[in-house]
């Protein structure tokens, strides 16, 4: 054994946020249906973790649950834990939760126009949480608001700070929302589809800005998205979700170079890739569609669409298992093969 030196990045970096077996269900007049069936992941300091999945996989409900903002009814958290610096925020009283929202965990949304209050100036909306959480004086808070707008590269921040959301363009609004989210220096920034509503050139600007801010500030980012290209461009690690469960958890390189779960593979084969050549690639797609909440099949929820499905898949839910130190997958078919190989290797 070599004694681990502090320069070697062998030990696991600090975990800022851990979600442990989170269970959320929808309770409506028509009945009860599970939305999240055991969501678990860890977010380390300074990293960008992408939660990726298609509509109906539960990624947004999972993100909103971090702030206990999932619309209730119908959503209700029925189990699991969300640990922020080791403290379970699901057990906190609502008053303490208010101290966490915007202060420890901040959130940016897909559509900035609906997340910003139309009757208050941009400055006012940045200043308010600063005075509340950081106990800054009004003057100091305004100064910081201007500083934040400058940080997100909004031109003429002194003038813009006094403007209303409708006076800003779409890209500027998204920048203002990022400034608002970062104002209190949160430990975790949850970005829910932050570039989905933006044009491609504006998306590129915002992604570049987020990468730059991460380098400079070091906030851990939880990126919720359906867009694998955005994931490849920004994330360090990726959690792939399908119908309420995590199916794969890997570093971004492993995920794109050696995807293991059939769903991840199908997803990667479905996205058209920009190429210099003029040959058209044939897109594969995945047959069928995501089962709606309330009508999920038993066993592995992906089994009905999966070409590799074996009997075990239709009967019981596969657990998330390691295939490498930084790569976990929940699939009976894959684990079947892996264990065989390991056995062979052990025999040889």
């Amino acid at each position: 054994m070599i004694p681990s030196s502090p320069t070697l990045p062998l030990s696991e970096p600090d975990t800022v946020l851990e979600v442990r077996d989170l269970q959320v269900q929808f309770e409506t007049i028509d009945g009860v249906a599970p939305v999240l069936e055991g969501l678990s992941y860890k977010l380390h300091a300074g990293e960008t973790l992408a939660i990726v999945g298609e509509s109906g996989c539960g990624k947004t409900i999972g993100a909103l649950s971090l702030l206990r903002l999932a619309p209730s009814p119908p959503a209700r958290i029925t189990g699991g834990a969300i640990l922020l610096n080791g403290r379970d925020i699901l057990t906190l009283p609502e008053e303490d939760m208010r101290g966490i929202r915007g202060n420890d965990i901040a959130m940016i949304f897909q559509e900035p126009m609906t997340a910003l209050n139309p009757v208050l100036t941009i400055g006012h909306q940045i200043v308010e949480p600063l005075m509340l959480h950081k106990r800054l004086s009004r003057a100091a808070a305004w100064e910081r608001a201007v500083e934040m707008l400058r940080l997100v590269e909004i031109p003429e921040p002194e003038r813009r700070v006094k403007e209303y959301p409708h006076q800003l363009s779409g890209g500027m609004r998204q920048r203002a929302m990022i400034a608002m989210a970062l104002a209190c220096g949160p430990k975790v920034l949850v970005a829910d589809e932050p570039t989905t509503a933006l044009d491609v050139t504006i998306q590129a600007q915002i992604l570049a800005l987020m990468a730059d801010l991460k380098r400079r500030i070091g906030t851990a980012i939880l990126l919720i998205t359906h867009d694998l290209a955005v994931v490849a461009q920004t994330a360090d690690r990726v959690v792939v979700m399908y119908a309420g469960r995590v199916v794969e958890d890997a570093s971004v390189f492993e995920l794109f170079e050696n995807p293991r779960h059939p769903y991840t593979r199908g997803l990667l084969a479905s996205i058209p890739k920009l190429s210099d050549g003029n040959e058209r690639q044939k897109l594969e797609g995945i047959p069928g569609s995501v089962p709606p909440v309330g009508a999920r099949p038993p066993g592995c929820t992906f089994a009905p669409r999966c070409t590799l499905a074996i009997d075990a898949c239709r009967q019981s839910v596969p657990a998330l298992d390691s295939v490498s130190p930084t790569h976990k997958v929940a699939c009976w078919a894959v684990m079947d093969k892996t264990s065989k190989k390991e056995l062979e290797r052990a025999i040889v």
């Binding site: 050139t201 998306q203 590129a204 992604l207 990468a211 290209a229 490849a232 794109f256 996205i271």
Partner: peptide
């Protein structure tokens, strides 16, 4: 140039 590529080795900076 703005289209993000689904490849973590080809990051646009």
């Amino acid at each position: 140039a703005a289209v993000p590529l689904p490849d973590p080795r080809k990051r646009r900076t």
